[in-house]
Design a protein around this nucleic acid. Structure first.
Lengths: 220, 220
DNA sequence: AGCGAATTGTAAAAAAACTGTAAGCGTGAG
DNA sequence: CTCACGCTTACAGTTTTTTTACAATTCGCT
């Protein structure tokens, strides 16, 4: 559900800063050098990449252009301890989208990352006839707003994002309700009923199917 | 490679100041009046324009709006010897991006120009009918200063700058109040109420919409 | 096919959460 | 001192979420 960030940074102190900053907000993987990064990058693409320019085994600029050779659009944020503009300009010319000087504030970091994700349109996701608009916490079905409440929004976007897989009730509880695991109650069913109501009101029928004994499934 | 600046300024003494200030940094062309400027402007577009408001043959304001008719995005910096705020406000409303009072320091000039070339760092930002003036911590709506307090200014400029996105309350707390995130209090609502009051007093209605359970949204 | 337990759907009521607004307090600048 | 500003408290009006209670459905088993 959360966006996945790759961070290339060798300083362990700074690594910790990243970890605490993104905790609970995004999923992150931190690489201490360029090689580890590219090994993983070959198999899995993140939603955004943060690169420190000064690295032990590889030039940060080279990393940026290598990333760009393999992928045109993933947002890249350059980070550098150098205060001079030149190093940033160079990074931007290699294909980075944004830059930050060390030391940076957590707030600034979060803002940049969010901006990067927005730019790449990740906050608006198309899923069949549905559009999940995380900017405005709405879900549209063929251009009509389903007018979901916050909980419904979270529930249904989770369902939509799990391509046709049957999602166990337990998983939904865990994801949407978290630890406050609710024992015996019809809460989930109620929300599903609400969703079904709003869906069919918008002309979308049989979107949420129940898989008895397991959970629910959303046709992709 | 160097950026090209056009400067409209009749005073020869001031012209020399510009020349020495920009020497080696940017290419500049200085015009003593509006006619010369537009003759050249028809054929070649600069990266930034500096306009003195008091000119012999033509009203500086008229120049600004004429430029804007022909080009939407070239940054324009207004310069005036008038110390009153009104002339600047007028310039901004005609489409200028920034302003400077004479006499100005070379450093200030360079900073403004640099900021202008890098639109993102501009101290004056146009956002729909609003003008965010970070020089003086004001926000203008169609010629009128909203007279915001510092906190209101920070809050509303943040809201304005997030193009139509729904901003969660949490984010507003984080951005405006920082880490002193106190649990439940109506502080944010109060400031929003204040803002709404001042907005509608200025004739701007329904600018801040509340998105229940999430936060607020400012229509783009 | 019929029965019963487990599971799911639904309506209504209850509880909780959320927002707007009024009133008042403390503080610091002028 | 007085006033503007930022914040808090209290409460009312709504909306959202959960609970309760019961109906309906499914499935294994005889």
């Amino acid at each position: 559900m959360n966006e996945l960030l790759y961070i290339i940074e060798d300083d362990e102190g700074v690594q910790e800063v990243y970890e605490s900053a993104f905790e609970d907000l995004y999923r992150i993987k931190i690489f201490g050098n360029g090689k580890d990064f590219f090994d993983t990058f070959a198999n899995e693409k993140p939603d955004l990449i943060i690169v420190d320019i000064m690295l032990p085994d590889m030039d940060g600029y080279k990393i940026i252009s290598d990333i760009r050779k393999r992928d045109e659009r993933i947002p890249i944020i350059v980070v550098s301890a150098k205060t001079d503009e030149l190093s940033f300009v160079k990074g931007l010319n290699k294909g980075a989208d944004d830059y930050m000087a060390k030391p940076f504030s957590i707030m600034e970091l979060l803002a940049r990352v969010k901006a990067g994700l927005r730019r790449s349109n990740l906050l608006v996701k198309h899923q069949g006839d549905f559009i999940i608009d995380k900017n405005n916490f709405r879900i549209l079905y063929k251009n009509t707003d389903l007018m979901l409440t916050p909980k419904e929004f979270r529930l249904f976007s989770y369902m939509l994002s799990s391509n046709g897989r049957t999602i166990p009730r337990e998983e939904l509880f865990r994801e949407i309700w978290g630890d406050e695991f609710i024992g015996e109650t019809r809460t989930l069913d109620m929300h599903v009923a609400e969703l079904r109501g709003k869906l069919s009101a918008a002309g979308a029928n049989n979107v949420i199917q129940t898989v008895r004994g397991i959970g629910y499934k959303v046709e992709s």
